[in-house]
């Protein structure tokens, strides 16, 4: 099984208008920069992005906003922390004008909706968000003496993920905190596209240390080491 593609444009070629696209990375760490750039070149519209944050440390994602490709985001920390830094950010301006819809989730709920999606579960109960705006319109159920909130799984159409190493069969190994959301997004999406720093042959990854088994990955692209500067 050889899942390697030769270019970022080929890797994202079938992403369609209106698709739900999960994008890995926590601020700068573990972001599949080259795949996001290819998505901007492809230009598909009305996208729903499942992504931690829009903007801080990630100009490529903002290009999607500037291109008018984003309809909605499902995020947990969508904006700049500093109000003054965020005031002029194109994404924040469009959200204030209600031109882009944002569904904000607690970070743990965001992760768990992906993990449930990848594990074939429809929903789960979490104590997080009870008594807050996050609970609005959602079922509350008591287990023992505690209230829990029903949250449903997310099954994105595509996931763009980043890993340190990958083999031709799609097995991936992440590195340090660049792992973050990448494995759960890879498992949840219908079609997962992985940008890897190093492409290796099957047999060259220690099977005991694989973070994402190849069954979850449709395409692998070697991108080298993306350069971004940590810090916001």
């Amino acid at each position: 099984m050889d899942k390697v593609v030769s270019s970022a444009d080929e890797a994202v070629a079938d992403i369609f208008d209106g698709a739900i696209v999960a994008i890995g990375g926590f601020f700068t760490a573990g972001t599949p920069t080259s795949l996001i750039q290819a998505l901007a070149r492809k230009g598909c519209k009305d996208l729903t992005l499942v992504i931690m944050t829009m903007g801080p440390g990630n100009p490529d994602v903002l290009q999607l906003v500037l291109n008018g490709q984003v309809k909605k985001t499902i995020s947990n920390y969508p904006f700049y922390r500093s109000a003054s830094q965020g005031a002029d950010c194109c994404f924040e301006i469009m959200v204030r004008a209600e031109l882009i819809e944002v569904e904000t989730l607690p970070m743990g709920t965001f992760c768990e909706k992906l993990r449930a999606g990848g594990a074939g579960l429809a929903a789960f109960y979490t104590p997080t968000g009870v008594g807050t705006v996050v609970a609005r319109g959602k079922e509350i159920r008591k287990f023992g003496d505690r209230d829990y909130l029903l949250e449903t799984a997310i099954r994105p159409d595509f996931a763009l993920v980043y890993a340190h190493k990958g083999d031709r069969m799609g097995n991936l190994i992440c590195r340090k905190t660049a792992r973050n959301f990448n494995p759960d997004m890879a498992a949840a999406a219908e079609c997962t596209i992985a940008a890897v720093e190093y492409l290796v042959e099957p047999g060259q990854l220690d099977p005991d240390t694989v973070h994402v088994p190849g069954i979850f990955v449709k395409r692998v692209l070697e991108v080298g080491r993306p350069s971004y500067v940590p810090g916001l």
Binding site: Y77, F79, V102, P106, G108, T109, T128, G129, V130, V133
Partner: peptide, 18 residues
């Protein structure tokens, strides 16, 4: 900050508080 209701940087705060 002028965002619609329910929209903001929740991050990990709700999970940690709970």
């Amino acid at each position: 900050r002028g965002f619609p209701e329910g929209v903001g940087n929740i991050g990990g705060s709700m999970d940690l508080a709970v």
